[in-house]
């Protein structure tokens, strides 16, 4: 079976954050394609559209990095919608946020997020967790031939 490389859908409105996340991902040695979205609406449309196609092309796989503070819809709403739709439910979602509010974290896990990362304030720890995630990606990703 030939696995298609996983795309990383990054939903993040802050350009700087997006760039930092990307840099950290790359530094961790993850070479997967990153598709950035600056708002929740566009990202949702894209994800849903992708998975309607995947009826025929079911090896289109992705991972979502989701910021909770979005300009249009709340990150929690995006999370809820993806996890409530059958075709997209299995997509892994990593929530990124600036807070470590216990209630918020709990809410995210209730809605079905797979990981929760506080925004990269401590560079070392963030790079670490991204590297761990990157490791996870690289195992799934087939090294480019």
């Amino acid at each position: 079976m030939i696995a298609t490389p996983i795309s990383i859908v990054m939903i993040e409105d802050d350009e700087g954050h997006a760039r930092l996340i990307e840099k950290n991902i790359r530094r961790a040695g993850v070479a997967n394609e990153i598709m950035p979205f600056a708002n929740g609406g566009d990202a949702l449309d894209f994800i849903v559209a992708q998975h309607q196609d995947s009826q025929s092309n079911n090896d289109r796989r992705m991972l979502i990095l989701l910021d909770l503070n979005l300009p249009d819809v709340s990150g929690l709403d995006v999370l809820a919608k993806i996890k409530a739709t059958d075709s997209t439910r299995q997509i892994p979602i990593i929530v990124l946020t600036t807070t470590d509010d216990k209630l918020e974290i709990q809410r995210c896990y209730e809605l079905g997020c797979n990981a929760y990362i506080k925004k990269p304030l401590e560079y070392e720890s963030f790079a670490n967790s991204v590297r761990q995630l990157g490791l996870f990606f690289s195992i799934i990703e087939l090294p480019p031939a």
């Binding site: 700087g16 930092l20 503070n69 807070t99 990269p120």
Partner: peptide
């Protein structure tokens, strides 16, 4: 505090 953290994340990150 929530919104002040956003630019701070950038400053610290960069």
């Amino acid at each position: 505090s929530h919104d002040l953290r956003s630019p701070l994340v950038n400053i610290m990150g960069f």
